[in-house]
Amino acid sequence: GGGNKQQATVSGGASPQSNSSSVINLKLHHHEPPGSRLNQALLKWADMVNQRTEGRLKITVYPGEALGKGKDTYSIVTNGIADIGWLPTALMPGKFPLTEVANLPLLGINSSKTGAKIMWELYQTNPEIQKEYSEVKLLSIFCSGYQLIGTAKKPINKLEDLKGLKLRTGGYGMTEFLKLVGGSPMNIPPPELYESIEKGVLDGFIFDWQGINSNRLYEVMNYAVDVSVAVIPQVFIMNKQKWDSLPPDIQKVLDELSGVQVAELVANQAYDAANQEGRDYMQKRNKQVRQLTSEEEKQWQEAAKPVWDKWVAEQKAKGLDGQKALDQVLQLVTKYKQQQ
């Protein structure tokens, strides 16, 4: 995004006056840059909390790894370096095995908003997933924007075109899917994608529009297949002791403003808004953004199913009921598709 940098300050803007002795200060850590849409959404949420608690709870947002690296977010929260943290589960492979069910390829979750509803309901109804967050207070659970395929030189006209392509991937689902269809997944950090694609080290990437826009990848990609290859689950967690130390009325406000509330805020403001913006950037430059037909989408989903089975088997080996989580997600996808 371009026009929203003026608010890119660390603190949460104007707050109502309040008796300073009773103000509770919390730190919110995340690794996205200060000018990012995610940061704007979290600043807005911090402001809402401040308003609703009449200034008694002040949340300072620390973006851009100012308090630690993104990979350490979980430790940053559990050790109290920050009180609240935002964490894509793909940054901590193995820690949230069943949550990652939503990362499986071609499940059909095609917006962050739908994803947020699915994740929240999944969390509410699956005790095994709830157990994955027993050390923290889970404020909310949602997911990234959908991860699509962008390429520099080769358009993807059919599934087979992915064969032999070197694409950046960033999670289990995309990596396994790409391997399965004969491509080469590569793990290159987002700030380096631009140069790698420009020079041809990479053929393209599987990434969400928000990431594409903030790294200006639309400058170097010429073709996009606008399909949801996968989404990345994200959690919004809080230090448990800190949560327990809050007065009940403040806990109540936080609970009301968390859950689906903050999930939808992030989904709308950070991810789904970026989707149209990204397509516009591409159109302005006369670049191709191709939608899949519904037959194609079915064909791709069929092709992805071995990854689902592999994942379920892996969970079984760990003594976890992956099949149940997968069935639940598929049901929820159908349920929310009908509501759309």
Partner: peptide, 20 residues
């Protein structure tokens, strides 16, 4: 302490699932 933490949380690497 961190050894205990990363063991207990089953942290592995992204592509090859090598234990941390």
């Amino acid at each position: 302490l961190q050894v205990g933490h990363v063991r207990a949380t089953h942290q592995v690497s992204q592509a090859l699932a090598i234990p941390h």
